[in-house]
Design a protein around this nucleic acid. Sequence first.
DNA 1: CTGAAAGCGCTTACAG
DNA 2: CTGAAAGCGCTTACAG
Lengths: 340, 340
Amino acid sequence: MKKRQVSLKDIANEVGVSIATVSYVLSDRKDSRVSEAMAKKIKEVAKTLNYQPNKIAQSLKSGKTNTIGLIVADISNPFFANIARIIEDEATKLNYTVIFGSSDEKAEKSLHLIDFLSSRQVDGFIIVPSEGTDNQIIQLKQQNIPLVLIDRYFPNISTNHVIIDNFEASGKIVNELIASGYKRIGMIAYSNPLFHMRERIRGYQETIQNHFGNNISPNLVEIDFNDSRKQVCTAIDGLLAGENPIDAIFFATNTLAILGLKYIDELSLRVPDDIAIVSFDEGEAFDFYYCPLTHIRQPLDEIGKKAVQVLTQQITQPDMGEKQICLKADLIKGKSSIRR
Amino acid sequence: MKKRQVSLKDIANEVGVSIATVSYVLSDRKDSRVSEAMAKKIKEVAKTLNYQPNKIAQSLKSGKTNTIGLIVADISNPFFANIARIIEDEATKLNYTVIFGSSDEKAEKSLHLIDFLSSRQVDGFIIVPSEGTDNQIIQLKQQNIPLVLIDRYFPNISTNHVIIDNFEASGKIVNELIASGYKRIGMIAYSNPLFHMRERIRGYQETIQNHFGNNISPNLVEIDFNDSRKQVCTAIDGLLAGENPIDAIFFATNTLAILGLKYIDELSLRVPDDIAIVSFDEGEAFDFYYCPLTHIRQPLDEIGKKAVQVLTQQITQPDMGEKQICLKADLIKGKSSIRR
DNA sequence: CTGAAAGCGCTTACAG
DNA sequence: CTGAAAGCGCTTACAG
């Protein structure tokens, strides 16, 4: 049977003083005018009894839990796992705990997580919103619960957010392929209406258009997140078929790239000799891939830290205006986009 | 400014009834004998006001938070990340929240996490104990806080634990090498006194001894966790030098294997032609390694689920005896241990 | 069938 | 310099 933790009352009884006095001493308020001698004695007893304040009680009183709710889209994706880690570390530094969950890109799961975390009285949320969660975000805004979106946002809902310029990054990496001499560049993306994905696609399409005008049209295949393993293969087959097979593929995410590269291996195609490959984000899986991948590296560290900073500011100064931060991503050049 | 959440009081005022009555209705106690009509009205109002019970207040009253504290040794290791995910999912199923942290194999950080989680009144702990945390575990036991150790345990402290038979697994994989015809088998492990590591080493040593007696002695190199990148290279150099270089290496963990394989690539050695490789655990990084690795696969799923089940049982039935579960791990045969 | 009251552990404005 | 008292939002044994 669990022993009751020692409380202020226990210390008060031991010292022979009131609970209030103990509280004043241990909460170290400057304006408490408790005598030195008494304070010293109370602190001593607290130490020997190994007193730990009950945060639950403190939270109930103060209405603050110093807890952040984090909802990511897919924790099995190292991109989100890394961001989660960074957010956790930064939050810890600022004396916040993070409770997190993965929505697995499902609106229903997201709603459940928000209710769950709300009932636990988190002070605010950091959310990677998934498709169809617009109204959940609106709801949180209406309740005036501090909130920061990351990775994605809804252009028609004004919120705090920290994102990267996906349009620019996408253009940058397609330009790299073009500069290497590739012309028939295909893109494989998710058929997902979220802003970050649309921006990546738009960056691809406009860059192709700008360079080749009507001579070469973009070659985009959008696939379903829930059936990606199969559809990536079909997509690649499609891009390689016909009289003008593509000579380069741009994968819109690291998960797509991993699936795609496995299939390309199966087809016994060599990168970049048979086909050039570029991708968004990294993955531990690429560590041992024979051909270092040209990819977009998002400033994870900055995204995570800024998100926590913006959120905690909103928590402590609720009347501060909204912060919208858009960062630039880096192009990392590997061998996978070198001209064969 | 954050709006106050609606409370029982708000509903009570709205309906014109006491807080107690509302509480009875909404907590759905069978023994509440509130009239049907009243109950219905209260539930309706609760719904329209979108009432969510304040878990903080409930916890303070009940002394239960339905929260589990999870401390892993190193969250950047996919082995622990995966286990954390499984524990989280299982806990959610059983209506518990998980708050977790990574001790980074440091006793000091572990202590800080335990204090932190204790003050948040977690109902119990699942811990991957790191070196030097013996006394922290003893302390938790003395406070009668429910506790389950995983992956490792202290043989001289009796606790709930869920582990695998590292001695057996280690023997199994060394036997596989021997069966393939390898004789000079080196092992690279951490110089870490924890039981799981000692068992892996003992499994290796005894298996070598059983097969070769005094003809061939074990060739073990222990390296420091905090300087592993460098020391793995030195270790491999050492094993390959001399008149009787080894022809196979057994890495005691996946992190060691990754570091080792990178170095072996740098040396332009081919697996298994130039050297055979076997390892404990997997890693996403191996997905693209040209030679599928022979390795020990631990039953992560079972470890995680059992840990949660044992812990929640201890929480709800504190006078139940200790549970000690030892699982068997599987040998997954790849091409990395095939006779050249 | 319904409500007043105590209490979980803490904080803090107020009184002495 | 110190303490009695109210209150955070909830639950529940007890009284009516």
